[in-house]
Design a protein around this nucleic acid. Structure first.
Length: 371
DNA sequence: TCTGGGGTCCTAGGACCC
DNA sequence: TCTGGGGTCCTAGGACCC
Protein backbone atom coordinates (compact mmCIF):
# COMPACT_ATOMS: atom_id res chain seq x y z
CA UNK A 1 0.00 0.00 0.00
CA UNK A 2 2.71 2.47 0.95
CA UNK A 3 6.10 2.53 -0.63
CA UNK A 4 9.01 1.63 1.54
CA UNK A 5 12.73 1.94 1.56
CA UNK A 6 15.17 4.47 0.21
CA UNK A 7 13.80 7.08 -2.11
CA UNK A 8 16.54 6.68 -4.65
CA UNK A 9 17.63 10.23 -4.68
CA UNK A 10 21.08 11.03 -5.95
CA UNK A 11 23.46 13.89 -5.72
CA UNK A 12 24.29 16.27 -2.97
CA UNK A 13 22.58 16.92 0.30
CA UNK A 14 19.94 19.56 -0.27
CA UNK A 15 20.04 21.06 3.20
CA UNK A 16 22.37 23.79 4.23
CA UNK A 17 24.65 22.78 7.05
CA UNK A 18 23.16 19.31 7.22
CA UNK A 19 20.01 20.48 9.00
CA UNK A 20 17.15 18.03 8.80
CA UNK A 21 13.59 17.76 10.00
CA UNK A 22 12.60 14.32 11.27
CA UNK A 23 9.05 13.25 11.97
CA UNK A 24 8.76 10.38 14.43
CA UNK A 25 5.51 8.46 14.60
CA UNK A 26 4.84 5.43 16.80
CA UNK A 27 3.38 2.41 14.99
CA UNK A 28 -0.11 1.37 16.12
CA UNK A 29 0.57 3.31 19.29
CA UNK A 30 -2.51 2.61 21.39
CA UNK A 31 -2.86 -1.01 20.32
CA UNK A 32 0.87 -1.53 20.88
CA UNK A 33 0.67 -0.18 24.43
CA UNK A 34 -2.25 -2.50 25.20
CA UNK A 35 -0.40 -5.52 23.81
CA UNK A 36 2.69 -4.64 25.85
CA UNK A 37 0.84 -5.03 29.12
CA UNK A 38 -1.17 -8.03 27.91
CA UNK A 39 1.19 -10.08 25.77
CA UNK A 40 -1.50 -12.70 25.23
CA UNK A 41 -3.24 -10.21 22.92
CA UNK A 42 -0.40 -10.32 20.40
CA UNK A 43 -1.63 -11.47 17.02
CA UNK A 44 -5.30 -11.05 17.92
CA UNK A 45 -7.73 -8.51 16.51
CA UNK A 46 -7.74 -5.76 19.16
CA UNK A 47 -10.10 -2.80 19.07
CA UNK A 48 -9.81 0.11 21.52
CA UNK A 49 -12.71 2.52 21.88
CA UNK A 50 -15.04 4.23 24.32
CA UNK A 51 -15.60 2.28 27.49
CA UNK A 52 -15.02 -0.97 25.68
CA UNK A 53 -18.75 -1.69 25.46
CA UNK A 54 -19.87 -2.19 21.85
CA UNK A 55 -23.51 -1.61 22.74
CA UNK A 56 -22.78 2.01 23.69
CA UNK A 57 -22.54 5.12 21.54
CA UNK A 58 -18.80 5.29 20.92
CA UNK A 59 -16.25 4.99 18.13
CA UNK A 60 -13.02 3.12 17.50
CA UNK A 61 -9.85 4.90 18.63
CA UNK A 62 -7.43 2.33 17.25
CA UNK A 63 -7.60 -1.11 15.70
CA UNK A 64 -4.68 -3.54 15.51
CA UNK A 65 -3.48 -4.73 12.10
CA UNK A 66 -5.39 -7.99 12.63
CA UNK A 67 -8.64 -6.06 13.18
CA UNK A 68 -7.95 -3.73 10.26
CA UNK A 69 -7.87 -6.75 7.99
CA UNK A 70 -11.62 -7.02 8.64
CA UNK A 71 -12.15 -3.44 7.51
CA UNK A 72 -12.18 -1.79 10.92
CA UNK A 73 -10.63 1.66 11.25
CA UNK A 74 -10.52 4.66 13.56
CA UNK A 75 -13.68 6.70 13.73
CA UNK A 76 -15.94 3.77 12.96
CA UNK A 77 -18.85 3.26 15.37
CA UNK A 78 -17.88 0.63 17.92
CA UNK A 79 -21.13 -1.18 17.28
CA UNK A 80 -20.29 -1.60 13.61
CA UNK A 81 -16.72 -2.67 14.35
CA UNK A 82 -17.93 -5.35 16.76
CA UNK A 83 -20.22 -6.76 14.11
CA UNK A 84 -17.42 -6.92 11.54
CA UNK A 85 -15.06 -8.76 13.90
CA UNK A 86 -17.17 -11.03 16.10
CA UNK A 87 -14.25 -12.40 18.12
CA UNK A 88 -12.39 -9.10 18.53
CA UNK A 89 -10.96 -8.14 21.90
CA UNK A 90 -12.61 -4.79 22.66
CA UNK A 91 -10.86 -2.64 25.24
CA UNK A 92 -11.74 0.69 26.89
CA UNK A 93 -9.61 3.77 26.20
CA UNK A 94 -7.04 4.21 28.98
CA UNK A 95 -5.61 7.68 28.38
CA UNK A 96 -3.35 7.63 31.41
CA UNK A 97 -1.53 4.55 30.22
CA UNK A 98 -1.01 6.07 26.77
CA UNK A 99 0.18 9.35 28.28
CA UNK A 100 2.74 7.55 30.43
CA UNK A 101 4.05 5.62 27.42
CA UNK A 102 4.11 8.85 25.43
CA UNK A 103 6.14 10.62 28.09
CA UNK A 104 8.71 7.82 28.02
CA UNK A 105 9.00 8.08 24.23
CA UNK A 106 9.37 11.87 24.25
CA UNK A 107 11.99 11.68 26.98
CA UNK A 108 13.99 9.32 24.77
CA UNK A 109 13.74 11.72 21.84
CA UNK A 110 14.84 14.67 23.98
CA UNK A 111 17.80 12.66 25.24
CA UNK A 112 19.25 12.42 21.71
CA UNK A 113 22.29 14.64 21.34
CA UNK A 114 21.63 18.02 19.74
CA UNK A 115 17.95 17.35 19.07
CA UNK A 116 15.13 19.90 19.21
CA UNK A 117 11.81 18.19 19.90
CA UNK A 118 8.37 19.55 19.01
CA UNK A 119 5.60 17.29 20.28
CA UNK A 120 2.55 16.95 18.04
CA UNK A 121 0.44 14.51 19.98
CA UNK A 122 0.60 11.37 22.07
CA UNK A 123 2.44 9.40 19.45
CA UNK A 124 4.34 11.79 17.23
CA UNK A 125 6.89 14.57 17.23
CA UNK A 126 9.11 16.63 14.97
CA UNK A 127 12.83 16.69 15.64
CA UNK A 128 15.37 19.15 14.32
CA UNK A 129 18.75 17.50 13.94
CA UNK A 130 22.09 18.29 12.40
CA UNK A 131 23.69 15.33 10.67
CA UNK A 132 25.31 14.38 7.38
CA UNK A 133 23.52 11.04 7.40
CA UNK A 134 19.88 11.39 8.46
CA UNK A 135 19.00 7.78 7.58
CA UNK A 136 21.53 6.41 10.04
CA UNK A 137 20.37 8.93 12.64
CA UNK A 138 16.76 7.85 12.07
CA UNK A 139 17.52 4.15 12.47
CA UNK A 140 19.39 4.92 15.67
CA UNK A 141 16.31 6.77 16.86
CA UNK A 142 14.08 3.80 16.16
CA UNK A 143 16.44 1.53 18.10
CA UNK A 144 16.67 3.93 21.04
CA UNK A 145 12.88 4.18 21.31
CA UNK A 146 12.52 0.41 21.00
CA UNK A 147 15.08 -0.18 23.70
CA UNK A 148 13.60 2.28 26.19
CA UNK A 149 9.89 1.57 25.60
CA UNK A 150 9.59 -1.66 23.57
CA UNK A 151 7.63 0.33 20.99
CA UNK A 152 8.37 0.60 17.27
CA UNK A 153 8.32 3.89 15.43
CA UNK A 154 8.66 5.08 11.86
CA UNK A 155 10.72 8.10 10.86
CA UNK A 156 10.17 10.57 8.03
CA UNK A 157 13.09 12.73 6.91
CA UNK A 158 12.44 16.06 5.22
CA UNK A 159 13.70 19.52 4.41
CA UNK A 160 10.40 21.04 5.60
CA UNK A 161 8.02 19.99 8.35
CA UNK A 162 5.33 19.13 5.81
CA UNK A 163 7.63 16.86 3.78
CA UNK A 164 8.94 15.11 6.88
CA UNK A 165 5.40 14.50 8.12
CA UNK A 166 4.25 13.05 4.82
CA UNK A 167 7.42 11.01 4.46
CA UNK A 168 6.52 9.04 7.57
CA UNK A 169 3.54 7.52 5.78
CA UNK A 170 5.97 5.87 3.35
CA UNK A 171 8.22 4.71 6.19
CA UNK A 172 5.62 2.60 8.00
CA UNK A 173 5.97 0.20 9.57
CA UNK A 174 9.20 0.65 11.51
CA UNK A 175 11.05 2.14 8.54
CA UNK A 176 12.67 5.34 7.31
CA UNK A 177 11.84 7.47 4.25
CA UNK A 178 13.29 10.72 2.92
CA UNK A 179 11.17 13.32 1.12
CA UNK A 180 12.73 16.59 -0.04
CA UNK A 181 12.31 19.17 -2.78
CA UNK A 182 14.27 16.80 -5.03
CA UNK A 183 11.84 13.87 -4.99
CA UNK A 184 8.65 15.60 -3.87
CA UNK A 185 6.94 15.62 -7.25
CA UNK A 186 8.22 12.18 -8.21
CA UNK A 187 6.73 10.69 -5.05
CA UNK A 188 3.64 12.85 -4.48
CA UNK A 189 2.84 14.44 -7.86
CA UNK A 190 0.34 11.87 -9.11
CA UNK A 191 -1.37 11.41 -5.77
CA UNK A 192 -4.74 12.99 -4.92
CA UNK A 193 -4.68 16.25 -2.98
CA UNK A 194 -6.39 14.59 -0.03
CA UNK A 195 -3.11 12.79 0.71
CA UNK A 196 -1.69 16.14 1.85
CA UNK A 197 -1.52 16.97 5.55
CA UNK A 198 -4.20 19.59 6.01
CA UNK A 199 -6.40 18.72 3.02
CA UNK A 200 -9.50 16.76 3.91
CA UNK A 201 -12.52 15.60 1.97
CA UNK A 202 -14.16 19.04 1.77
CA UNK A 203 -11.14 20.94 0.50
CA UNK A 204 -10.13 18.21 -1.96
CA UNK A 205 -13.69 18.37 -3.31
CA UNK A 206 -13.56 22.13 -3.72
CA UNK A 207 -10.15 21.87 -5.41
CA UNK A 208 -11.59 19.30 -7.82
CA UNK A 209 -14.22 21.84 -8.87
CA UNK A 210 -11.30 24.06 -9.93
CA UNK A 211 -9.95 21.08 -11.94
CA UNK A 212 -7.20 20.46 -9.42
CA UNK A 213 -7.16 16.81 -8.41
CA UNK A 214 -3.47 15.90 -8.05
CA UNK A 215 -0.66 17.25 -5.94
CA UNK A 216 1.26 18.16 -9.11
CA UNK A 217 -1.65 20.26 -10.36
CA UNK A 218 -1.91 22.01 -7.00
CA UNK A 219 1.83 22.63 -6.99
CA UNK A 220 1.66 24.19 -10.46
CA UNK A 221 -1.27 26.51 -9.84
CA UNK A 222 -1.06 30.25 -9.28
CA UNK A 223 -1.74 30.91 -5.56
CA UNK A 224 -3.79 33.96 -6.50
CA UNK A 225 -6.23 31.72 -8.38
CA UNK A 226 -7.17 30.01 -5.15
CA UNK A 227 -8.01 33.20 -3.27
CA UNK A 228 -11.57 33.60 -4.55
CA UNK A 229 -12.45 30.07 -3.39
CA UNK A 230 -10.45 29.79 -0.17
CA UNK A 231 -9.72 33.33 0.99
CA UNK A 232 -6.54 35.37 1.27
CA UNK A 233 -4.79 33.13 3.77
CA UNK A 234 -5.90 29.60 3.00
CA UNK A 235 -5.74 29.97 -0.80
CA UNK A 236 -1.99 30.68 -1.01
CA UNK A 237 -1.41 28.25 1.81
CA UNK A 238 -2.91 25.31 -0.11
CA UNK A 239 -0.75 26.18 -3.09
CA UNK A 240 2.32 26.10 -0.89
CA UNK A 241 1.21 22.78 0.56
CA UNK A 242 1.02 21.34 -2.94
CA UNK A 243 4.70 22.13 -3.37
CA UNK A 244 5.58 20.64 0.00
CA UNK A 245 7.02 24.00 1.03
CA UNK A 246 6.65 25.71 4.38
CA UNK A 247 8.26 25.92 7.75
CA UNK A 248 11.74 24.40 8.04
CA UNK A 249 12.45 25.07 11.68
CA UNK A 250 11.46 22.78 14.49
CA UNK A 251 10.20 24.89 17.39
CA UNK A 252 10.36 23.50 20.91
CA UNK A 253 8.68 26.51 22.55
CA UNK A 254 6.36 25.06 25.18
CA UNK A 255 2.81 24.96 23.99
CA UNK A 256 0.24 27.11 25.76
CA UNK A 257 -3.40 26.04 25.45
CA UNK A 258 -5.82 28.64 24.06
CA UNK A 259 -8.69 27.07 25.92
CA UNK A 260 -10.15 23.96 27.45
CA UNK A 261 -13.32 22.10 26.60
CA UNK A 262 -15.30 19.06 27.55
CA UNK A 263 -18.06 17.36 25.67
CA UNK A 264 -20.27 14.37 26.26
CA UNK A 265 -22.42 12.27 24.02
CA UNK A 266 -25.31 11.00 26.08
CA UNK A 267 -26.27 7.36 25.83
CA UNK A 268 -29.90 8.48 25.96
CA UNK A 269 -30.87 11.80 24.42
CA UNK A 270 -31.70 14.53 26.93
CA UNK A 271 -35.29 15.69 26.68
CA UNK A 272 -35.97 17.52 29.96
CA UNK A 273 -34.69 21.04 30.71
CA UNK A 274 -33.68 19.84 34.17
CA UNK A 275 -31.40 17.25 32.61
CA UNK A 276 -29.79 19.85 30.37
CA UNK A 277 -29.24 22.21 33.25
CA UNK A 278 -27.61 19.51 35.32
CA UNK A 279 -25.44 18.33 32.41
CA UNK A 280 -24.15 21.84 31.71
CA UNK A 281 -23.27 22.38 35.37
CA UNK A 282 -21.26 19.18 35.29
CA UNK A 283 -19.39 20.15 32.10
CA UNK A 284 -18.63 23.62 33.42
CA UNK A 285 -17.21 22.16 36.61
CA UNK A 286 -14.92 19.83 34.68
CA UNK A 287 -13.68 22.59 32.37
CA UNK A 288 -13.07 24.94 35.28
CA UNK A 289 -10.91 22.33 36.95
CA UNK A 290 -8.54 22.51 33.99
CA UNK A 291 -8.71 26.29 33.77
CA UNK A 292 -8.04 26.81 37.45
CA UNK A 293 -5.11 24.44 37.28
CA UNK A 294 -3.58 26.80 34.70
CA UNK A 295 -4.30 29.90 36.73
CA UNK A 296 -5.34 32.03 33.75
CA UNK A 297 -8.54 34.11 33.49
CA UNK A 298 -11.44 33.11 31.24
CA UNK A 299 -12.34 35.50 28.42
CA UNK A 300 -14.84 33.56 26.33
CA UNK A 301 -17.40 30.78 26.57
CA UNK A 302 -18.91 28.48 23.98
CA UNK A 303 -21.78 26.07 24.45
CA UNK A 304 -22.09 23.39 21.79
CA UNK A 305 -25.34 21.52 21.32
CA UNK A 306 -25.95 18.54 19.07
CA UNK A 307 -29.64 18.16 18.57
CA UNK A 308 -30.52 14.59 17.69
CA UNK A 309 -29.84 13.12 15.28
CA UNK A 310 -26.92 15.17 14.04
CA UNK A 311 -27.55 18.88 13.88
CA UNK A 312 -25.03 21.00 15.76
CA UNK A 313 -25.28 24.58 16.92
CA UNK A 314 -22.86 26.66 18.96
CA UNK A 315 -23.65 29.56 21.23
CA UNK A 316 -20.70 31.76 22.11
CA UNK A 317 -20.08 34.81 24.20
CA UNK A 318 -17.07 36.92 24.99
CA UNK A 319 -16.87 37.90 28.63
CA UNK A 320 -14.95 40.27 30.85
CA UNK A 321 -11.83 38.59 32.21
CA UNK A 322 -12.86 36.59 35.18
CA UNK A 323 -11.53 33.89 37.36
CA UNK A 324 -14.61 33.47 39.43
CA UNK A 325 -16.30 30.05 39.41
CA UNK A 326 -19.78 31.35 40.14
CA UNK A 327 -19.42 34.03 37.51
CA UNK A 328 -18.48 31.55 34.79
CA UNK A 329 -21.25 29.17 35.83
CA UNK A 330 -23.84 31.94 35.77
CA UNK A 331 -22.82 33.06 32.30
CA UNK A 332 -22.77 29.47 31.05
CA UNK A 333 -26.31 28.92 32.32
CA UNK A 334 -27.23 32.12 30.56
CA UNK A 335 -26.16 30.53 27.27
CA UNK A 336 -28.38 27.57 28.09
CA UNK A 337 -31.30 29.95 27.58
CA UNK A 338 -30.51 29.91 23.85
CA UNK A 339 -31.05 26.19 23.53
CA UNK A 340 -34.08 25.29 21.47
CA UNK A 341 -36.55 23.60 23.77
CA UNK A 342 -38.59 20.62 22.60
CA UNK A 343 -35.65 19.11 20.71
CA UNK A 344 -33.85 16.04 22.03
CA UNK A 345 -30.16 16.68 22.73
CA UNK A 346 -27.53 14.08 21.95
CA UNK A 347 -24.35 15.98 22.86
CA UNK A 348 -23.36 18.94 24.96
CA UNK A 349 -19.97 20.61 24.94
CA UNK A 350 -18.55 23.51 26.87
CA UNK A 351 -15.39 25.44 26.09
CA UNK A 352 -13.63 28.18 28.02
CA UNK A 353 -11.17 30.39 26.19
CA UNK A 354 -8.37 31.77 28.35
CA UNK A 355 -6.34 34.93 28.11
CA UNK A 356 -2.95 34.39 26.53
CA UNK A 357 0.27 35.73 27.96
CA UNK A 358 1.70 38.03 25.29
CA UNK A 359 4.97 36.16 24.91
CA UNK A 360 3.19 32.82 24.57
CA UNK A 361 1.12 33.88 21.60
CA UNK A 362 3.85 32.72 19.26
CA UNK A 363 4.17 29.37 21.02
CA UNK A 364 3.54 26.58 18.61
CA UNK A 365 0.33 24.62 18.62
CA UNK A 366 0.14 20.86 18.61
CA UNK A 367 -1.50 20.26 15.29
CA UNK A 368 -0.83 23.32 13.17
CA UNK A 369 2.68 24.19 14.13
CA UNK A 370 4.13 23.39 10.76
CA UNK A 371 1.79 25.65 8.90
C1' DT B 1 -23.96 1.63 10.11
C1' DC B 2 -24.84 5.85 12.52
C1' DT B 3 -21.33 8.56 13.82
C1' DG B 4 -15.95 10.30 20.50
C1' DG B 5 -13.35 13.87 22.61
C1' DG B 6 -9.77 17.33 22.78
C1' DG B 7 -7.74 20.83 20.27
C1' DT B 8 -6.52 24.90 16.53
C1' DC B 9 -7.32 28.33 13.04
C1' DC B 10 -9.98 30.65 9.22
C1' DT B 11 -13.97 33.03 7.15
C1' DA B 12 -18.36 35.36 6.65
C1' DG B 13 -21.51 38.54 8.13
C1' DG B 14 -23.54 41.78 11.36
C1' DA B 15 -22.98 45.57 14.71
C1' DC B 16 -20.86 49.59 15.76
C1' DC B 17 -17.76 53.60 15.36
C1' DC B 18 -15.57 57.47 12.98
C1' DT C 1 -32.90 62.88 4.81
C1' DC C 2 -30.02 59.62 2.99
C1' DT C 3 -25.67 57.86 2.52
C1' DG C 4 -19.63 56.13 1.54
C1' DG C 5 -15.98 53.58 3.20
C1' DG C 6 -12.72 51.80 6.42
C1' DG C 7 -11.70 49.60 10.72
C1' DT C 8 -12.60 46.57 14.62
C1' DC C 9 -15.08 43.48 17.50
C1' DC C 10 -18.19 39.69 18.06
C1' DT C 11 -20.80 35.44 16.91
C1' DA C 12 -21.59 31.34 14.27
C1' DG C 13 -20.02 27.88 11.53
C1' DG C 14 -16.66 25.13 9.04
C1' DA C 15 -12.50 22.41 8.33
C1' DC C 16 -8.82 19.87 9.87
C1' DC C 17 -5.70 17.26 13.05
C1' DC C 18 -4.49 13.51 16.65
Amino acid sequence: MVRKGPCGQTGTVSQGENQWVLHVDLDQFIAAVEVLRRPELAGKPVIVGGRGDPTERAVVSTASYEARAFGVGSGMPLRVAARKVPDAVILPVDSEAYLAASDAVMATLRAQPGATVQVLGWDEAFMGVSTADPETYARGLHDAVLESTSLHCSVGIGDTLVRAKIATGFAKPAGVFRLTVENWLAVMGDRPTIDLWGVGSKVSGRLAKLDITTVAQLAACDPADLVPEFGPKMGPWYAQLGRGDGERTVDDTPWVARGHSRETTYQQDLTEPVQVDEAVRELVARVLEDVIAEGRPVIGLTLKVRYAPFFTKTYARRIAETFDREDVLAQALNLVGKIEPERPIRLLGFRAEMSMPEEARKGHTPTRSGW
